[in-house]
Each structure stands twice: as structure tokens, then as C-alpha cells.
Amino acid sequence: MRHRTGRPLAAAGFATLVLMAAPVAQAASPTSEGRAEWRGWLSDSAGGLRDGAERAIILGGALLYQNRHTVAGLTLGCLAGGAVGATGAVAAGAATGGAALPATGPAAALGCALGAAAGGAMGRPLDRPME
């Protein structure tokens, strides 16, 4: 069974970049005195940026909804694994009189990575029940 997590995420990232790189209308518009007035990036005269941002938000929300169990598994796995790694390193530090305490950060990072991998693997089949 082959998982294709990278393809939808890469496609969403590419689509977001394309939408955000769309040409932006001029943000300044002439006033009655002939001067340009600044109205902000998301004003009516900068409609291209607003439309691109709205499309990116909708696309990101749809992608997150389709992969919600995987994202939740990654997040919860990272939190649990990091806590276990840090707790183990602190316990080793207490047992060695503080000599193992510098290993707390790397142990928490490794626990986070391993927990995220396990949580993502558990959440992925829930997102793709027909595969």
C-alpha cells in the first residue's frame, strides 16, 4: 500500500504560490486633487491580492479537512513523544547528577519526530478509508 501524502501537500503549496504571485492591482487611486491616496493592501483597489488570499485560505482549509486525522495524529504524536523523550532525559539527568541534562532537547526532538511518525501513520487510514 503506497501513501501519497506528499503529492497533495506539494500541489497545495504550489497552488498557493501561484495564487499569491498573481499580479496585484495598484493600491493607490487618484483622489479629486490628483494625489494618490494609500488605501491598504486589502482595499477594493487591490482586489487581486484579496482574491488570491481568499482562494489560498479556501484551498488550505479544504486540504486540511481532507487530511484532518493525519494532521491530528501528527500533532498529538509529536506532543506525546516529546513529553516522553524529555521526561526520560530529565530522569536520566537526575540519576546521573545532572550529567545527562544536556540531552533533554535532542531527546524531546527525537521523541517528537517518532511520535509524529506513529501518529500520522495511525491517522492516515482514517482519511483514506477506501484505499
Rank of each mutant, 00 (worst) to 15 (best):
M1C: 02
H3S: 11
R4V: 07
R4G: 05
R7K: 13
P8I: 08
P8G: 10
L9T: 06
F14G: 03
T16A: 14
T16F: 15
V18D: 02
V18C: 04
V18T: 09
A21V: 01
A21Q: 10
V24K: 03
A25R: 03
Q26F: 12
Q26G: 08
Q26M: 01
A28R: 07
A36S: 09
W38K: 00
G40Q: 02
G40D: 09
W41A: 09
L42M: 13
L42T: 12
S43F: 05
A46V: 03
G47H: 04
G47N: 05
G48W: 06
L49A: 13
R50I: 04
D51E: 09
G52D: 03
A53G: 02
A56K: 03
A56R: 05
A56W: 14
A56Y: 06
I57G: 00
I58C: 00
L59Q: 07
L59P: 01
G61T: 10
G61F: 12
A62L: 14
L63W: 05
Q66M: 13
N67E: 14
H69M: 08
H69V: 01
H69L: 01
T70R: 02
L74W: 12
T75C: 07
L76A: 02
G77C: 07
C78K: 08
L79F: 14
A83K: 06
A86W: 15
A92E: 05
A94F: 13
A94N: 14
A94H: 14
A95W: 15
T96W: 07
T96N: 05
T96D: 13
G97F: 15
A100H: 07
L101T: 11
T104S: 06
P106I: 04
A107F: 10
A109C: 04
A109K: 01
A109E: 09
A109D: 12
A109Y: 12
L110A: 14
L110C: 10
G111R: 02
G111V: 03
A113P: 00
G115Y: 04
A116N: 01
A116I: 05
A117E: 02
A117T: 08
A118G: 01
G120R: 07
G120V: 12
G120D: 08
G120N: 04
G123E: 10
P125I: 08
L126Y: 08
D127Y: 13
P129A: 09
M130L: 12
E131M: 11
